[in-house]
């Protein structure tokens, strides 16, 4: 990726984190949010594959952790894994359809949620009960998935190439 594109996406990521931590509390009940960083991670993974997905997931998650004051690394690990897996999955299941990013965001969100739950439980950093967390995550992932097409239409995400193109390149 060229430097301007890289910087543009970095800026978008920063703004996404800022929006998430400042606007979402006004718009949704506690715990529920549109996970913009996850959407960006999944779309990047769709566009760039496993490495891009993992790197952007890690970067976005880490920024989220640092800005929101969470335990550093929880979101980073969850989103990095989500980005990596989505990047791996897209090489197998990618179809030129608007529904694919939606489904993959739901998939990535589920992965991220499960990892976050596992880490939070393991390290004793759960701020709420597991049931409440899971309910909020289900709503958040659903909302994020529904809003994915809007973000996908953003010019910074040129439509991912088809499987054939990827294979040709490989």
């Amino acid at each position: 990726m060229r430097l301007p594109g890289l910087l543009l996406r970095a800026a978008v990521l920063v703004i996404a984190v800022a929006l998430e931590s400042s606007i979402m509390p006004y718009l949704a009940p506690p715990g529920v949010r549109v996970d913009l960083v996850l959407i960006l991670t999944v779309l990047t993974a769709l566009h760039q594959g496993r490495p891009g997905g993992a790197v952007w997931g890690f970067g976005g998650g880490l920024l989220e952790d640092l800005v929101t004051g969470r335990v550093v690394g929880v979101s980073a690990l969850g989103k990095m894994t989500a980005g990596y897996l989505v990047g791996a999955v897209r090489e197998v299941v990618f179809r030129d359809s608007l529904l694919v990013p939606v489904v993959l965001v739901a998939f990535g969100g589920t992965v991220n949620g499960l990892i976050t739950l596992a880490l939070a439980s393991s390290f004793g950093i759960m701020g709420t009960g597991p049931a409440g967390f899971i309910r909020a995550e289900i709503v958040s992932v659903t909302l994020s998935a529904i809003l994915t097409p809007l973000v996908h239409m953003c010019p910074i995400f040129p439509h991912a190439r088809g499987v054939s193109d990827v294979r040709e390149k490989a």
Partner: peptide, 17 residues
């Protein structure tokens, strides 16, 4: 690389938690 990154992040989580 992914596993290494995971381990690194886990250690960061451990420290910062």
């Amino acid at each position: 690389g992914y596993i290494a990154a995971c381990l690194a992040v886990l250690s960061v989580i451990y420290v910062t938690s």
